[in-house]
Design a protein around this nucleic acid. Structure first.
Length: 913
RNA sequence: GGAUCUUUAGCUCAGCUGGCUAGAGCGUACGAUUCACAUUCGUAAGGUCGCUGGUUCGAGCCCAGCAAGAUCCACCA
């Protein structure tokens, strides 16, 4: 006996994964592709698909990219292949529960498609996680009492590189532990040479197409991290604030205007006061000049719709350099931009005597000084939205900065066009519309980041002279390893900034599949992009825009978005709440399969759903159940071999019909398995994985184990048992790869690796025979239920009258019900009649016990009577008979007849007593 | 301010294009025990499907309105 008493995942998982990897089954096989007509014949047989991986060596982190050489003539047509990319986990981090979910979903899909015989390519990734890693590294520097300003950009980059290398590896082991059947040879790191090359190519194209511009615009700036952020990286929160009223006197001393502001410290950057043109109160003030308090400057009163009559005093100070609205007002009125807060969050010389102060300290002093000058006219608590850094929660300051922007108008329009044409199918469907809505309101994309850890922006500025028009002259050059270059005797200095990581991540499907212009690539577009719904805008939107821009095709045909994994109370997981669930802990405790089954259960597309250890326990139990089924079947096989000398090869499972169905339950289980097989395929196509897990659980446990295997104990049908077990193992394999493979390796009659077997073929069965077993199941269930309800708890014999089904299967009924005897009763029936319409069955109990049971019987009659009433009511409605489908009406009639017969029988029983 | 989603058993969720007595896992109660599995077996209890209308022979499902909760987007001084 090779099977231990219980399945201990820890004893097999690493070994099984190693066997898969060693066998090379995760790689997309070239052989398959040749047969599909994808590759020219001059390539040697057996050679794998190296040209579709950018790099032959495993783990190519940081290695030099080797461009694919000639791939040969274009193949005729794209064949069915299955490709999917892993959203790259942080290279130097640990997997969190969200990764666990992603991998469970993706790997299940990949394994299913592999079993279907499609060439599959699951491409793993590792993310340099620009800002995330940078924040971690800055903390390391801090501990060493150093700051970023002590090093050059190159030094910092090199140091972080080494830091990442040291920390690296854990994540990849964790991905393996989850069973991801990804092609490790093709691991793509977001700073790989081919990624950088592709990103530069796109940037150059955009530069030439005029989509890139450098502009001094307001950017979201974190003064702690000293970098700008894209809009989506900023967290907006409702907060309590104060709205102050400050009087600005007219220059000629004839009056004043009281303005409302939440940020008095920015007043040194005021360049105007705006009032609404329709505001009667201020009509004659427009065009006059105001003295800016605490300064020597004076500013005009302008008319602009931006000033709302109802809000505050109706007059608003205009500070174009520190407020988005004011920036636009400034543009409209051609006002200067006066910056008074620096990138370090301190006041600049423009603030006069306040220069050098922290902006918040400055606010306090300004308020005090205004009060002293008698210009502070009141304050009011308000609730307003404040922007924060998503990492350190510092209030994000809108600051003027020269940055690279992408003009997104055309990119977004094109994405919308393809989305509206329905070229990408979304799960859940609503997210497609949400995305279009987002793209319609997209602002230009700031792609500059002041973080050394990232891909350098390949732009160089002429240093010795300015351009002809006196403005800085920028050129594109991809030699970013140099901080300065010389072209034709002119020196250019590299921009110090790096790309927003989403700009490079937006290329993910392109770089992972090694898409190249003019070459047919069976793996691009991806079949499906599976990722978190929270990065629909940040990532999915960018991949679509960039994919279309670079390849003229949408980068994937379907998008499956999973929601957040919440804790068991439905709360968001967070370190501060201490409710974070570590997937690796669960894998260690219950096994990888149990984790996968557990995390998939109760989860549907796009929804934030709770997750509890219970579901993992349920998964663990299923694995153990399956293990024990296999243990039993193998035992039966061993006994058969010993007794009848079967050779194991006679028990192979490959043929469509390697079995005969003779006895009760055999056709039935084939029917149930066939139904499960077909339904599973449908569910997997529609990404209904949670339902698929439930279906498998019910089929394996409630049907296969509880009824079929149980029945088989009386007289095992070995070819059928081995065949059906193989079918079950194959169907469960995508979800629970380790236990199914381990069993496959332990069974004496199986060959090869389960991972590379074929998805089961149609099962053949006889419908009438299957139906019959179902009726026998009713008999068994009713007998068990009645025995349970009978007082005394004693076991009674089962008597049958004119009942061929029970007569022919009396041994099986006896075995399944555990009654001491199943015997025919001649003549006058006795005992308690079972509540079955189609069978005449009695439990041989004394009259005394029947009497005690009488109440329960009456209740039963009433219950059936209520059901009968409901059915009759329906039939009494002439419009039902008239309009409902005939089939349905017929079924209702049958049901009525059956219930009437049942009640009749039960009533007769009562009278007997 | 805009948008999306959710509301079904004690808990977490299914319920596909409207069709018979609304399901599962976990939990609960009762019973079983050396027969593959106590990570087990059997049985049972538990639901006016958020509320109000409408469409329909028929509504958990479709439509309208309301209520509660969640999430995302947004520059209101």
């Amino acid at each position: 006996m090779k099977f231990a008493k219980a399945y201990e995942p820890g004893e097999y998982e690493a070994e099984v994964y190693g066997a898969w990897e060693a066998a090379g089954v995760f790689l997309p096989k070239k052989q398959e592709m040749v047969s599909l007509g994808q590759f020219p014949s001059e390539h040697a047989e057996g050679e794998d698909l190296a040209q579709y991986s950018s790099e032959p060596a495993p783990g190519r982190l940081g290695q030099v990219f080797m461009a694919p050489q000639s791939i040969g003539p274009k193949p005729v047509a794209r064949q069915r292949a299955f490709s999917i990319v892993m959203p790259p986990p942080n290279a130097n981090g640990n997997l969190h529960i969200g990764h666990g979910l992603t991998i469970a979903i993706q790997d299940t899909l990949v394994r299913y498609h592999r079993l279907l015989g499609e060439p599959t390519w699951y491409i793993p990734g590792a993310d340099h996680a620009g800002f995330e890693t940078w924040v971690v590294y800055e903390r390391v520097l801090e501990k060493q009492k150093q700051t970023r300003f002590m090093f050059t950009r190159e030094e910092l980059y090199a140091r972080v590189w080494d830091f990442v290398q040291e920390q690296r590896g854990g994540m990849e082991l964790q991905v393996r532990a989850l069973g991801a059947s990804c092609s490790w040879r093709d691991l793509t790191f977001t700073l790989d040479e081919n990624v950088v090359r592709r990103v530069y190519a796109t940037f150059e194209k955009m530069w030439k197409d005029g989509l890139i511009y450098r502009g001094e615009k307001l950017v979201n700036y974190c003064t702690k991290h000293q970098t700008a952020f894209a809009d989506i990286e900023v967290v907006h929160r409702d907060e309590e604030g104060t709205l102050w009223s400050v009087a600005y006197p007219l220059l000629d001393g004839t009056g004043e205007i009281v303005v409302s502001t939440t940020r008095p410290e920015t007043m040194f950057g005021d360049v105007a006061v705006a009032v609404n043109p329709a505001d009667e109160r201020y009509k004659e003030m427009i065009g006059r000049r105001l003295k800016l308090p605490l300064t020597e400057r004076d500013i005009p009163v302008i008319a602009d719709e931006h000033a709302e009559i109802e809000y505050g005093t109706g007059a608003v100070k205009i500070t174009p350099a520190h407020d988005y609205d004011d920036f636009e007002v400034g543009e409209r009125h051609d006002l200067p931009r006066l910056t008074v807060i620096g990138f370090d969050g301190k006041m600049l010389p423009a603030a006069g005597e306040y220069a050098g102060m922290e902006s918040l300290d400055c606010r306090k002093k300004v308020l005090k000084d205004l009060a002293v000058a008698g210009l502070l006219r009141g304050e009011k608590k308000i609730s307003h939205v404040v922007a924060h850094c998503y990492k350190c929660d510092t209030v994000v300051e809108p600051l003027l900065k020269d940055q690279w922007f992408i003009d997104v108008e055309k990119l977004a329009a094109r994405a919308i066009e393809h989305l509206e044409r329905g070229e990408i199918k979304f799960y859940p469907e609503s997210k497609g519309r949400v995305l279009v809505n987002y793209l319609k309101n997209l602002h230009d994309w700031n792609i500059s980041r002041q973080i050394p850890w990232g891909i350098a922006i390949p732009m160089f500025r002429r240093v010795d002279t300015e351009g002809a028009d006196g403005r800085p002259e920028w050129i594109f050059d991809n030699r970013t390893h140099l901080s300065e270059i010389e072209i034709g005797g002119v020196r250019y200095k590299r921009d110090e900034d790096t790309f927003d990581t989403w700009f490079s991540s937006g290329h993910w499907p392109i770089v992972c599949t090694n898409w190249e212009e003019g070459l047919e690539n069976p793996f691009y577009p991806l079949n499906v992009m599976e990722t978190g719904a929270d990065i629909l805008f940040a990532w999915v939107a960018r991949m679509i825009m960039i994919g279309l821009y670079v390849t003229d095709e949408v980068p994937f045909r379907e998008v499956y978005l999973h929601g957040l994994v919440l804790d068991e109370k439905g709360q968001k997981m967070s370190k501060s709440k201490g409710n974070v669930i570590n997937p690796m802990e669960l894998v260690g405790k219950y096994g990888s399969d149990a984790f996968r089954l557990g995390i998939l259960r109760g989860r549907s597309a796009g929804m934030n759903q709770a997750f509890a250890e219970n579901s993992v326990i349920s998964g663990r139990n299923l694995c153990n159940k399956l293990w024990n089924i296999a243990r039993l079947v193998q035992g039966m096989v061993d006994a058969e071999v010993a007794e009848n000398g079967y050779s194991v090869s006679e028990l192979t499972t490959g043929a469509e019909r390697a079995y005969e169905t003779n006895r009760m339950g055999e056709d039935w289980i084939c029917r149930e398995l066939e139904g499960c097989r077909v339904e599973l395929m449908k569910m997997l196509e529609e990404y209904r994985l949670a339902e698929a897990v439930e279906l498998l659980h019910a089929t394996i446990w409630d049907k296969y184990a509880d009824w079929f295997v149980e029945s088989q104990k009386l007289a095992p049908n070995i070819p059928l048992l081995t065949h059906t077990l193989a079918v079950i193992l194959t169907m469960l394999h995508p979800f629970a790869p380790f236990v199914t493979e381990t069993i496959w390796q332990n069974l004496s009659w199986t060959e090869g690796l389960l991972i590379s077997q074929q998805w089961p073929l149609k099962l053949i069965y006889d419908e009438i025979s299957a139906e019959k077993f179902e009726r026998l199941m009713d008999v068994v269930s009713e007998t068990r239920g009645t025995l349970q309800r009978l007082p005394g708890g004693k076991k009674w014999a089962l008597l049958y009258g004119d009942d061929s089904l029970v007569a022919e299967n009396s041994e099986l009924v006896k075995f399944l019900t555990r009654v001491p005897e199943v015997v025919s009763v001649e003549g006058q029936p006795r005992g308690l009649r079972l509540a079955l319409a189609n069978n005449e069955l009695y439990l041989d109990v004394p009259e005394k016990v029947v009497l005690e049971y009488k109440e329960s019987l009456e209740e039963r009659i009433l219950a059936v009577g209520r059901e009968l009433d409901a059915l009759n009511l329906r039939m009494m409605n002439p419009r039902y008979v008239e309009r409902a489908p005939a089939e349905l009406v017929r079924e209702t009639r049958n049901a009525i007849a059956e219930k009437e017969a049942l009640i009749e029988g039960l009533k007769r029983e009562l009278k007997v007593i």
